[in-house]
Nucleic acid binder design. Structure first.
Lengths: 343, 343
DNA sequence: GACCTGCTTTAAAGCGCTTCAATAGTGTGG
DNA sequence: CCACACTATTGAAGCGCTTTAAAGCAGGTC
């Protein structure tokens, strides 16, 4: 009885195939395939009838089958850390960029039990034509090796002497922008809360030092220990408040540190921006919240992702083979935590 | 010349296929397939030789091909909003749960240009056997319709008279827990900052009202307007401070509102938790930050996702057909923003 | 030596689509 | 009226794997 229900009448629910559409219209499967993919050839009349029948039957192409049959997959794999807001932001933009270029995305996320290696393997097995790795952790050499298999674009991580495409923001310039903004407001006593080890913290720190010196403030350079978390920012704030007069402005390595810094300052009764101006880095979603309203530097994710996609397209469709580095200029987002210094 | 480079010698880089492995070992493709999938049959000796040859050649199965050829895909589709931290948290847990049950995940994210409908369609085209929808927006009826095609589990959204599986947290109970915690600390004057329209805000509000009455505090019930954003929390705080004496404790609809509330209170010089205790809802990542240290209610995502996966497995492998609702008990996370009332 | 048993291995038929050479149809100019 | 150039359509061969019925084979049994 149950079998009857399943196999009888309109139920059965077998998903319609290309052949079913073809049979319904009275043309060959080849024609249907051409019509559905919008390939030139079939006449307008045929197109219409096929389209009609397809939607009538509720036909949906099977991706596995088309993937297997087509020479190209037009699939770009993306490796990201789903727990990282900056990554999720980028992915959204990449999604749009991919669509614009006629590619589809396959997401592969890092989790507790799934490292970069495995994430990449999944993508390779899925017939991706290129890989976009957001903030990849793997050694540069391993990335180069991977690049021999298919185009690889590393986003947001500076790779010295890279053998793969790199798209990143000019982090030093970003900090220069921030420093110059503060100097423009009249600040001279500007402290930088460092981000720790690594290529990115290094770049940003250098940006600070360079900008200060360039404006004759070499004497005022003051870098204090920090990190990339709220805690480290809070710690830095307390350190500054405990040791002599506070500067009139502070820059942090990133927004998270800025958040901790802000919180500690406010709790200590320091007026922000009245007494101390604060600038973060990243333009993270919470920096935009009305009650935070943090002046910060944007990595310009739309441009970052557009270049990443462009790099993919160039190598896939444009025949480029030499790796390239694209450096995107960050943008200063002036908001409420910066004003001229007191007095 | 270039063609030579490509087609000559070990390069050519054509990806090895099952046949290549079979040829290398001198067995049939069928045998290789069996070995690689760990199916019983091939002898230990054959297994070893096949495995050896496979790794030797760097063979990796083509997912599109196996997907197409196999009866089952063991693929579960997940629809999520990648911009929502709660969703990303859930996805991480689902990833683990799926792995434990021997399923693979296909992620489909909502973006500006990609709504739920399209996200679902992509998954259907990818041969998913079941769908997990995180906080689905579609009308209940549409979900029911979808459920006729394949098992659907809605996570985190209460669906009245659901025709699909629902896994959600007992939001009313969560607030009850929070209220009782405050009462236990000695609070009587407890205000609730509401979350606005919708099923979830309703549940939480009711939880508050019920708990207050159950403890003889019906007179003290005070619900003020709020929302689900930092701004709404900040607004609520200002409202409370402007109108008469502040309560000794406040509950908010969610952590984001709690963040805004905290910020506004602290800026106004109110001691938290000394003068006012605050409880949020969601146990979001930032509530755990040392400098926030917010007492809040956890939706217990590991349990939520485990049940979601279990529901999928039951329907796919266990033959269950009737939809079911699973309600998970939330957990109170007592942290630093709650203490006994002053005085 | 014929025959059965139980374990390994394999041939062959797809999975649902794309691709492309080849065919059929339709006018045009000579 | 035929050769020619098009345009529209299609047959058939895969894409790289899984699956299943059947074949092969070794070792016992009588």
């Amino acid at each position: 009885m149950e079998r009857d229900l399943l196999s009888a009448g309109e139920s059965a629910a077998r998903r319609p195939r290309l052949d079913d559409v073809a049979a319904a219209v009275g043309v060959s499967p080849a024609t249907v395939s051409l019509v559905l993919r919008g390939v030139a050839g079939p006449s307008a009349a045929t197109r219409e009838r096929v389209l009609e029948a397809a939607s009538q039957l509720g036909y949906r192409p099977d991706r596995a089958a088309s993937l297997l049959a087509s020479r190209r997959s037009r699939l770009v794999g993306v490796v990201m850390d789903i727990a990282n807001p900056f990554h999720t932001q980028l992915v959204q933009d990449v999604q749009d960029a991919a669509e614009r270029h006629g590619y589809d995305l396959v997401l592969s996320t890092l989790t507790r039990s799934r490292d970069e290696q495995r994430a990449v393997e999944t993508l390779l097995d899925s017939r991706c034509e290129a890989l976009i790795l957001i903030g990849p952790q793997a050694p540069a050499e391993q990335l180069a090796e991977l690049d021999r298999q298919l185009p690889v674009v590393a986003v947001g991580r500076p790779l010295p002497a890279a053998k793969v495409d790199v798209v990143r923001a000019a982090d030093d310039e970003g900090v220069v922008l921030a420093v110059e903004h503060l100097i423009g407001l009249g600040h001279r006593d500007i402290t930088y809360v460092d981000g720790g080890r690594g290529a990115i913290p290094l770049l940003r720190r250098h940006g600070y030092q360079r900008a200060m010196r360039a404006h004759g403030l070499g004497e005022q350079v003051r870098v204090i220990r920090g990190g990339n978390t709220e805690e480290s920012g809070a710690l830095a704030a307390r350190g500054v408040l405990d040791t002599g007069p506070a500067p009139t402005a502070m820059l942090t390595f990133n927004d998270r540190a800025a958040m901790g810094l802000l919180d500690a300052l406010i709790r200590a009764g320091v007026d922000v921006p009245g007494a101390v101006s604060v600038v973060g880095y990243d333009d993270s979603p919470f920096s935009r919240l009305a009650h935070v309203d943090l002046t910060t530097v944007s990595q310009n994710t739309p441009e970052l992702t557009e270049h990443a996609m462009a790099a993919v397209v160039e190598r896939l469709d444009g025949g480029r083979t030499e790796p390239r580095e694209v450096v995107v200029r960050p943008r200063l987002m002036v908001r409420g935590t910066t004003t001229p210094p007191p007095g």
